[in-house]
Amino acid sequence: MTCNRTDITQQLPDLLAGNLRGEEAGRLREHLETCSFCAEEYRVLSRLAALEVPEPKAGFFDGLPGKVTRDIREEKTVSRARFRLPAIELNWKVGLAAASLAAAALLVFLLPKTEPVLVQKPDDNVPLISVAMGFETNILTESDYKISDVSDALEFEVELTEDDLMEITGAFLFGGIEYMDMDADALLLFEEELGSIPQRS
């Protein structure tokens, strides 16, 4: 038993939510009377929609805005601290990595901000960016995702080891970051962070 009327099945949630009116709703209801496949789907969706979320622990919603504000303040303090990173010893590998990273960032900066920067990934074996920089790997590792919130991705947890730096630089230069769409604020932060790397010696 099946039905190939995807125009109907796709609208069943709208019918259920009462978002369809008049002729449109009538057309769907008429179909449901004659199609057992769609009628069953509608029943399942109805049961699903009726599932209520249990009330959370008492006081949860009253306390949440305050907790969020507290976390924001803490995060601001931590962020300030993060930008005063302990010096790491520069050697030729770190220098090379920092220079490459700066070059890659300059490339990102020079391209128009409205257009995503596309870095082709040469093959599937290139290691993807590490979490050390706060990148959300699930965004970066799935080809159908773009980074929509760069500040989400760039949290600047840059307590970088040499290996981290090499990995990040490699990801920039040789693939791994497939799309990068930075807005001006995120770019500025990123540049600041890059600028801080050579000063750590």
Partner: peptide, 22 residues
């Protein structure tokens, strides 16, 4: 799961705050 939902909700708001520029 309540605990996970509560934690994720809180984290999401904090992330949203720092992403407001976007």
């Amino acid at each position: 799961n309540h605990d996970d939902a509560a934690e994720i909700t809180q984290k999401a708001f904090v992330k949203a705050y720092f992403s407001l520029g976007n």
